[in-house]
Simulated scan of single mutants.
Amino acid sequence: MINTAVKQEFGSNPLKVRDTNHYQAEYVHSFVDRWDQLIDWDRRAESEGDFFIRLLQEQGARKVLDVATGTGFHSVQLLKAGFEVTSADGSPVMLGKAFENARKRNHILRTVHADWRWLNRDVHDYYDAVICLGNSFTHLHDEKDRRKALAEFYATLRHDGVLILDQRNYDAILDHQIEPRHNFYYCGDNVRATPEHMDDSLARFRYEFPGDEVFHLNMFPLRKQYMQRLLHEVGFQRVTTYGDFKETYRESEPDYFIHVAEKRYIEGGDEE
Results as ranks from 00 to 15, higher is better:
93 V>R: 00
217 L>T: 12
56 L>E: 02
82 G>R: 01
131 I>Y: 13
195 P>H: 02
12 S>M: 01
131 I>Q: 09
183 N>L: 09
215 F>W: 05
95 L>I: 03
35 W>C: 10
204 R>F: 14
102 A>L: 05
225 Q>Y: 06
95 L>W: 04
3 N>M: 04
238 R>L: 08
99 F>A: 11
167 Q>T: 15
130 V>F: 01
153 F>A: 08
38 L>Y: 07
138 T>Q: 13
206 R>Y: 14
131 I>F: 06
184 F>E: 11
141 H>W: 07
64 V>F: 00
217 L>C: 13
22 H>Y: 13
248 T>L: 03
249 Y>H: 03
146 R>W: 00
5 A>P: 04
199 D>F: 05
182 H>S: 07
226 Y>Q: 15
188 G>H: 07
97 K>R: 13
85 V>H: 01
150 L>I: 01
47 S>P: 04
4 T>N: 09
234 V>S: 06
267 E>W: 02
49 G>S: 12
4 T>A: 14
140 L>H: 00
153 F>C: 12
59 Q>S: 11
116 W>L: 15
139 H>D: 12
53 I>E: 15
129 A>V: 02
223 R>F: 02
40 D>I: 02
212 D>H: 04
252 S>I: 10
46 E>A: 14
191 V>D: 14
2 I>W: 03
138 T>E: 01
126 Y>S: 10
202 L>H: 05
126 Y>P: 00
206 R>C: 14
152 E>S: 02
61 A>C: 15
93 V>S: 08
105 R>D: 12
67 V>Q: 10
191 V>Q: 05
147 R>M: 02
272 E>I: 13
254 P>A: 03
30 S>P: 04
26 E>W: 04
35 W>E: 13
221 P>N: 10
124 H>A: 06
69 T>V: 13
192 R>M: 09
201 S>T: 11
24 Q>H: 10
171 D>Y: 02
250 R>P: 00
156 T>E: 09
192 R>Y: 13
233 E>H: 08
200 D>S: 14
66 D>L: 01
151 A>F: 01
146 R>H: 05
48 E>C: 03
60 G>K: 06
144 K>Y: 14
40 D>M: 08
4 T>V: 02
7 K>A: 10
168 R>D: 08
27 Y>T: 15
196 E>H: 14
124 H>E: 09
109 L>N: 12
144 K>T: 14
157 L>N: 14
36 D>S: 06
266 I>P: 09
8 Q>E: 11
57 Q>A: 15
37 Q>C: 06
243 G>L: 03
215 F>M: 12
206 R>L: 15
180 P>K: 05
264 R>L: 13
131 I>W: 12
54 R>V: 09
149 A>K: 04
8 Q>W: 02
216 H>I: 05
216 H>G: 11
219 M>S: 15
10 F>L: 08
171 D>N: 15
137 F>V: 00
104 K>Q: 10
158 R>Q: 13
102 A>N: 12
92 P>Y: 03
79 L>G: 00
169 N>I: 00
265 Y>H: 04
224 K>D: 09
128 D>I: 06
65 L>G: 00
83 F>S: 00
232 H>I: 03
84 E>I: 02
111 T>A: 08
153 F>R: 00
110 R>M: 03
54 R>S: 13
65 L>M: 11
91 S>T: 07
188 G>M: 14
247 E>Q: 14
31 F>L: 11
31 F>M: 10
106 N>H: 13
225 Q>I: 08
223 R>M: 08
153 F>T: 01
